[in-house]
């Protein structure tokens, strides 16, 4: 799916990255814990999150995340938007909750960037 199709599917607002809507997305990862995003997310994935601070963008940048989708009506802080513009990482915002967003994306063919974690990487 392209970011544009994702935007339409989730009635999302594009806050950063209007020029990158043709970007193709095939996998996604969802979490509010950046530590877990760093542990598990794969390059080129869409990141679904409810966290809105600039660290979301920093994390996305480090991991080569394709775009950020903020769920359940969360709005990024101005500093987050400024940083995403600077680093060229698209941010979309949807009112759908994480579960609904993920379900709708999955039904259109988007898959998790992994299915399960390895047992030693779950948590201590």
């Amino acid at each position: 799916m392209t970011l544009r199709e994702i935007k339409e599917l989730l009635e999302a607002e594009v806050l950063v990255g209007h020029s990158q809507l043709d970007r193709e997305i095939t996998t996604a990862f969802g979490a509010d814990l950046m530590s877990d995003v760093l542990a598990f997310a794969k390059p080129g994935s869409l990141l679904l999150t409810g966290l809105t601070n600039p660290q979301v963008v920093r994390t996305a940048d480090v991991l080569d995340i394709a775009a950020i989708l903020m769920v359940r009506g969360k709005r990024p802080t101005p500093e987050t938007i400024r940083l995403a513009e600077e680093l060229g990482i698209p941010i979309l915002a949807t009112k759908y909750i994480l579960f609904e967003s993920a379900g709708r994306l999955y039904s259109k063919g988007i898959r998790g960037c992994m299915e399960k974690v390895e047992s030693d990487r779950a948590t201590g």
């Binding site: 530590s35 601070n53 660290q55 990487r121 948590t123």
Partner: peptide, 19 residues
Amino acid sequence: AGYSTANEKIREMGFGAGM
């Protein structure tokens, strides 16, 4: 994995999960 001494401020940022 999972061990952390992080405070509230660190957790608010999305960190401190012990990873």
